[in-house]
Nucleic acid binder design. Structure first.
Lengths: 219, 219, 219, 219
DNA sequence: TATGAATGAGGTTTCATTCAT
DNA sequence: CATGAATGAAACCTCATTCAT
């Protein structure tokens, strides 16, 4: 598969700081992602995961107290990285006029997130499905979105509005338009029609153009 | 709950044509929707459904051979109605110039679908969650979208493009923009932030305006 | 099927004396025999019987208090007729020298029982399978065999032994030989190899000949 | 019980080659045979088996995927041993004139099979009852009987016929007589009248004598 | 650390039987 | 007499989790 297990490398690195992940543990996590993402968490059995990982069922529970802990150990870390860092550096750049134009900023963000989604597709699928059923995840999600994303996005939108480069809409509405268009592109591209042959660059440019005109100051 | 069980009335009417649904059967379907939509299909137990329906567990299986058949009996009918009829009458009206302007058409569609989604929220939730795990549903979904939606939407988009009222984008791309914006609105409004106090009319107008300018012929 | 439902005619006649069997009741009994004989009593469900009989499930229980009563109502009557009457008239004939030779008697009995078995095959199958699990049936079986069959058979065997036409073996042993040979023929013919093309007359003669020489007074 | 669990020893030995049977697994098989043979397969419940085995019900399904697999694991192996080996060594001996007389051969076979049946009584009961309901078993049975038994028996019968020691009957018919007489003895002795006090040696001799005279060349 | 047999609670499904219509 | 919806006990089976090795 072309999907690079970026999330796995990340996971290993993180745990590495604490205690090394054993070879078997890595196999378990890989198998779990495979099974969870194709059958859903509730529809998966630890025995199938164990089998696919080439590991005894007991071994799973040596590393994770419960099946749910296994899920969270996979899904929680990705959440931060899914939403947050879309602008760790970029964010600053915008305000510091490294991105003088809205579209340069959009281009950077969309490229970055599309890339990220591609590399973490199966874990993201799991996340999307499980969020509604796990209050912990919802909680975490809301906090991150609120504190990290909305806060920053608001600043950026207002920044451009003040410069007269964006229409004077309620900020949340403007963010909604940008997000729908960008996320819409990514979901259709990666989830719904991954088979179609896409000209990614082209579609991204169209999307940016659509957003730009949609949000251009009326005149 | 403020959600009106439109889907239930519809279900009863449909089955009525064949054989009357018993009172208990209706209770079962209601309970199933409640439980499925809050715990997911795989996470729900027939015993909980039975209990909530005030029915013996065996009764469920008199009416539905399997738990999955119960799911499909609920979810399959809504799918057609979710996607298809967004333009049964409207569609004709557009081409017959009852909607002389794009925005009139958009307004009608968005209102209609928002309304529909509101009245069928829990069943739609179930549908969204289960589609990835049930090939039958995927199949049905794809067929309906391809044959009913894309076909019609394409005609409409081209219709407006020919009239010079819409930018010359690839049709799929144009449809993607409209769909993302409209569906984005509906999902955020009903699923993600149902608590917030919304001025629906206002947001719909913003959204139409956004789409209109995003797709306006470039001058 | 070539199997004539002799047992059914008999059943109807018997019940007729008491209360008429309704049309539906007859269908139930027919269906029950079909299902019981192909899946065994415990492996059959009243719902399958009802369906095959074209009758509501409740109807079965209107006529038979329990599933087991349905079984017994079918199987008990046949038992008497399976074992007993092999010599009601013939028996007398033997002793009254209507059958001057052993072999004439054997020929009559084997023909008669083979015929009977053929006409009641499926009910006999049921009987054979269920006897071990139903003490009532065992009881009935033992009584009939002891009182009707052994008693008479003993008399006949001794009759021929006294005449010097049969070897002086313990009577039970002699009866065992006759029974094994005759029953062996019938079972193989009807149960194990019903497909093979048999020359029944020929095989019966062989069998009689085998018994006759096996039991001939040693000289 | 006086019945020695020869079949169990055999089962354990067989499975041992692959993977050791656990203590609990042995208890399960023992309990299953007990329950199956007294209530029939369909009439037995896994919960009763578990209870009698002193094991959790789930444990049964760790070792056998289904109740039926448990049945087959018990019954299939005995079938081969029930029918086949009645003449593995004896067969050769006959043709090599170690058994110069028919009766010596018969004596050996009957003794051997009676012994075998006695040691495997309950499993044989199960086998007899379940064969009609399980096509796999029928299939296996027919193959073994056809390839192993009939083939050899035919050779032996012809061998003696050529020597002028046996009447010129169709081979199948001759085999049928021998089989009915021998199997008749064994079934009555062990299944129908196990309580009676038998002089086994005596009855076997009678039986051999009966067969010998029944099949003696007519003269 | 890793195993996999064992558990028992709970899941889905079947089924004989009852009862209102 | 006949129906078939409803029942609830019990059937078969699954599964997360524990624990002795």
């Amino acid at each position: 598969m072309s999907e690079v297990d970026e999330w796995l490398a990340e996971l290993i690195k993180m745990n590495d700081d604490a205690e090394k992940m054993t070879h078997k543990q890595i196999k378990i996590v890989q198998a779990a992602v495979e099974v969870f993402s194709s059958k859903g968490f509730a529809g998966s059995s630890t025995s199938e995961i164990a089998q696919k990982a080439g590991v005894a069922e007991g071994t799973i529970f040596r590393h994770y107290k419960t099946k749910k802990e296994l899920l969270l150990s996979i899904v929680a870390p990705i959440m931060t990285r899914l939403i947050t860092p879309f602008a760790l550096k970029d964010f600053v750049k915008v305000l510091e006029a490294d991105y003088p134009e809205v579209e340069d900023f959009l281009r950077a963000v969309i490229h970055n997130r599309m890339n990220f989604a591609q590399k973490n597709l199966s874990v993201i699928k799991i996340l999307l499905h499980e969020i509604p059923f796990h209050p912990e995840l919802q909680q975490q999600f809301k906090e991150i979105v609120a504190k990290q994303v909305l806060l920053r996005a608001t600043k950026i939108v207002k920044h451009f509005q003040v410069q007269g480069k964006m229409i004077e809409l309620p900020t949340e509405t403007a963010i909604r338009f940008i997000a729908s268009s960008a996320i819409g592109l990514i979901l259709i591209r990666l989830l719904f029609l991954p088979e179609a042959d896409w000209n990614d660059e082209q579609e991204i440019e169209y999307t940016i153009d659509f957003i730009m005109h949609g949000l251009a100051p009326r005149g």
